[in-house]
Simulated scan of single mutants.
Amino acid sequence: MVRWQRDIGEIRRLLLEIEGGREAFCALPRSSAEAMMLPAEECLPDAEARKLSYHLSLLESAGLAQFSRLSNGNWHVRGLTWSGHELLDNIRREDIWTAVQALHRQMGGFSMEILSDLARDMMRSEAGVLETSGT
């Protein structure tokens, strides 16, 4: 059974990888590669491939990243969108990310919009502290 749950850690990981220069993702399940008699060494196990493909689809449908998809399971990265960069800028720092994740777990989850807003507010609050201490 496939669980279609959004994993915020996976979203962040993918955004960071794309920003860092990742050019493509192979989401062809190992069993499919073997059935087509293709090299399967670099293919992901079926569940991991489905999870990757699902999260890449979420990034694309949310307008956070752009891809070109090939029939062989490869997703070629065309880049992050403005919104993708904005979200990543809000959740990049480990301390901010850890705090947002803790709230996410405590509340049982919330939307990416709220996640981004919380992280942005934490960054703004810290920037305010920096402004006050610099004067």
Rank of each mutant, 00 (worst) to 15 (best):
M1K: 07
M1E: 07
Q5M: 13
Q5G: 12
R6K: 10
R6P: 07
R6S: 09
I8D: 02
L14E: 01
L15D: 00
E17F: 12
I18K: 00
I18Q: 00
E19D: 04
G20W: 14
G21N: 12
G21L: 13
E23I: 09
F25G: 01
C26S: 09
A27S: 12
L28E: 04
P29S: 15
R30I: 04
S31L: 11
A35E: 13
M37F: 14
M37Q: 11
E42V: 07
D46G: 01
E48R: 09
A49S: 06
R50A: 13
R50N: 09
R50L: 13
R50M: 10
L52D: 01
L52H: 03
Y54E: 05
H55T: 05
S57I: 03
S61C: 04
G63Y: 00
A65M: 01
A65Y: 00
Q66A: 09
L70N: 15
N72S: 05
W75H: 05
H76I: 15
R78N: 07
L80K: 02
S83R: 11
G84Q: 01
G84D: 01
H85I: 02
L88Q: 01
L88P: 03
L88I: 11
L88S: 01
R93M: 07
E94M: 07
I96Y: 06
I96D: 04
T98K: 15
T98V: 10
A102T: 13
A102L: 11
L103T: 09
M107W: 15
M112Q: 05
I114A: 03
L115D: 01
R120N: 08
R120I: 02
D121W: 06
M122Y: 04
M123W: 13
S125H: 11
S125A: 12
E126C: 07
G128T: 03
